[in-house]
Design a protein around this nucleic acid. Structure first.
Lengths: 295, 295
DNA sequence: TCTATTTGATAATTCATAATTATTGATTAA
DNA sequence: TTAATCAATAATTATGAATTATCAAATAGA
């Protein structure tokens, strides 16, 4: 007799503990009374502890039985809860999506995604991390991230990219700079200025694009500073250490003494793309992506 | 096919989730591989949720599977404990409290608790285990521990903390060190010494606190060694490899050629707290806590 | 490229055991 | 006393878990 306790035993036990009557309990469980009797007896043998006192037409719980009753109630409850949660997670209505993003995605796409998620799938948790393009790609490959927001044209195999937001570029100038929206005509008006750009390894695509903008304007920019933080770049511009070209949406969210001139006429766009692992099976990620398609 | 989940399923699931390999898991369970395969498949059908991804010779967990793994670990642990408690209660004892503690709690709080328990509730059994802060938290969450003694300021949700002992810090110096209780005035007198501290991951709060003590003294300590054992730290100090700052009560219980200078004037205190799971219904734990409130 | 090996899944079968029916013995109420 | 009601026991059946045998797919090695 080397049996194991099973959940069946608990369910049967609870019925008897509640009814304190084998026949009635058996009826409630839709099984026969002898079956119930043997199962309870077996249970007592397995646990090596008497749970019920059968005494002259009366069934009652021993102290150990009282204790077990409370525990079984808890365990069965917990189990039900777990099953429900499991189902939700399996369907993507619950769970966690780990999101990485470039600082410049925080002005627009990411907040919208978070708002949408909160509204449609309130039980989906998100963790956010500001990371460079490269760091995001590595994290996604290593399964430390589910979704990334990058400015890259190509990604390693095994990953997929999809553009989610196209932004124009803007010239960033100190407030006191003679150029403004009125008298600005062409990019070559700033050909002789110093330029402050995001570093190449932070975003190679951005860097190349800015160089191509200048090239189209007929000059090669003199790059005096590089940084990985928009804040830093704006601060440098504010202090007249140079001018910058950045994605237009970056102008929101900072309080700086700088002015923006949107470069509408040029063909280049700052493309923000989402990246994910092709075989990522996180169902919450699917919901996330569905939502992004609609934005 | 209207089956019911049974504990057997959980045990099988956990084996596969741990091994991520059907044949190995089956071996560990002493059953055949096909039997395991069908049982897991059946489990996924019952729960109506995919738990594993069988993909090109690799088995891995889905997010739902990851979630279930944690839950199953909890449930099976809880069950084991319940069986033990039940047996004890059936034999007329009151139950068992599983206590974890940091080495530094062994000088004072834990022995007092054990004495009090033995006197007031001689039928309550205790098991003791020396564990790091993190290990205690994990064990309590997984229901492998009822009560922990830690030095942490914050704990995960679902747990409660309560400070039980506040200790000053002491400087630990080699016996031959020129500083002593007489000529010691301020912590910055040891600003240029090497420091030996408990590792960050053993006790992040302790580490931060010691750094803040030095900071208040106007210097950043040069940390030459880190250890998880008081014994080791004292030995290193004895051999003049550096000095240490530790909770004062640690000075009792060791025989070392080191001297202690209590830092009474500084504001920082080493706070020992007890931690337990909010919904722990272990009746023996209740008794334990009542006692601790009085100490 | 071919072969051998390893993986998990299927199919057919066996076997363990839960559950059923039929019955008993004990207790209580009429 | 008799009838009724309870849980326990015995014999039997039926369910479904586990086993053996086998397969298809995917690698790794030659």
């Amino acid at each position: 007799m080397n049996y194991q306790i099973e959940l069946r035993h608990f369910i049967y036990f609870l019925a008897v503990a509640e009814e304190l009557h084998y026949r009635k309990a058996a009826e409630k469980l839709f099984i026969s009374q002898p079956g119930l009797s043997t199962q309870i007896k077996q249970m007592e043998e397995i646990l090596d502890t008497q749970l019920f006192i059968r005494d002259k037409k009366k069934v009652s719980l021993t102290p150990a039985g009282e204790f077990l009753k409370k525990e079984v109630e808890f365990i069965l409850n917990h189990l039900e809860q777990t099953k429900k949660q499991l189902k939700l997670i399996g369907e993507g209505h619950m769970g966690e999506v780990r999101i990485g993003f470039l600082g410049s995605a925080m002005q627009n796409v990411v907040p919208n995604l978070l708002l949408g998620l909160k509204e449609r799938y309130p039980k989906v948790h998100t963790t956010l991390e500001e990371l460079s393009n490269r760091a995001q790609i590595n994290a996604i490959l290593a399964d430390r991230l589910d979704l990334g927001f990058v400015r890259l044209s190509r990604v390693p195999i095994g990953l997929e990219v999809k553009p989610v937001f196209e932004d124009t570029f803007s010239l960033v100038l100190p407030e006191e700079h003679p150029l403004d929206k009125g008298n600005f005509k062409n990019i070559n008006q700033v050909a002789n200025e110093d330029f402050i750009l995001f570093s190449q390894d932070y975003s190679p695509t951005y860097y190349d694009t800015v160089l191509s903008i200048c090239e189209d304007g007929g000059f090669a920019p003199n790059v005096s500073h590089k940084s990985v933080h928009a804040q830093t770049i704006f601060k440098l511009v504010e202090n007249k250490l140079g001018i910058a070209i950045v994605p237009t949406t970056l102008q929101y969210g900072f309080q700086m003494k700088v002015k923006f001139i949107e470069l509408r006429k040029i063909k280049q766009r700052a493309v923000l793309s989402m990246v994910w692992k092709t075989d990522n099976r996180n169902p919450a990620l699917q919901k996330c992506m569905d939502l992004l398609m609609k934005l």
